[in-house]
């Protein structure tokens, strides 16, 4: 996280991030916790939960839960990179699974939005248990910026 932010900036960013977590039902359902935000960066924790297990014999979290964590974390990083709040939508997301998650452990995701253009934001992400250099999954994604904020079915189209 960058250290050139003053306490007020940091508080504002954190507040924005927490609102983002609480306001999104699926993030809430997964129990996601926003741990840190910064300039174009976000860190989100997915607590271990038996409801999210993929293999009931081993107790390992399902890949889908980790995908959702990464997607949410990448989205949060994009928000942190924007100069003003606007609607965003995932365009594409590639996830590589490097190793299975260990049973009974939560997963942390970190994402960095390293480039923002007028229409598109580019993000890298990683998910791990304890150490970022021993990842469970890595990701690369793009997000569309300034997407419409009204439903197509309600609009003119």
């Amino acid at each position: 996280m960058p250290d050139d932010l003053d306490a007020e900036d940091l508080a504002r960013l954190r507040e924005l991030g927490q609102r983002f977590m609480r306001a999104v039902p699926h993030n809430n359902a997964l129990g996601l916790e926003l741990r840190a935000v910064g300039d174009g960066r976000a860190e989100i924790f997915l607590p271990y939960d038996v409801r999210l297990v993929g293999n009931p014999e081993t107790g390992v979290l399902h890949g889908g839960a980790i995908s959702a964590l990464i997607d949410a974390c990448c989205g949060a990083a994009v928000f942190q990179a924007l100069r003003k709040p606007m609607a965003i939508a995932t365009l594409d997301l590639r996830i590589d699974y490097l190793k299975p998650a260990s049973p009974a452990l939560g997963v942390t995701a970190r994402a960095h939005c390293y480039k923002v253009t007028r229409h598109v934001a580019f993000v890298r992400g990683v998910a791990f248990h304890d150490r970022e250099d021993d990842p469970i999954a890595t990701s690369a994604g793009t997000f569309m910026l300034g997407t419409r904020t009204t439903s197509r079915t309600e609009g003119a189209a």
Binding site: V24, G64, D71, A87, T149
Partner: peptide
């Protein structure tokens, strides 16, 4: 929740 639209992660799953 504004649109509303499904979470990208849910579709991925």
């Amino acid at each position: 929740p504004v649109l509303p639209a499904l979470h990208g992660g849910a579709l991925c799953a």
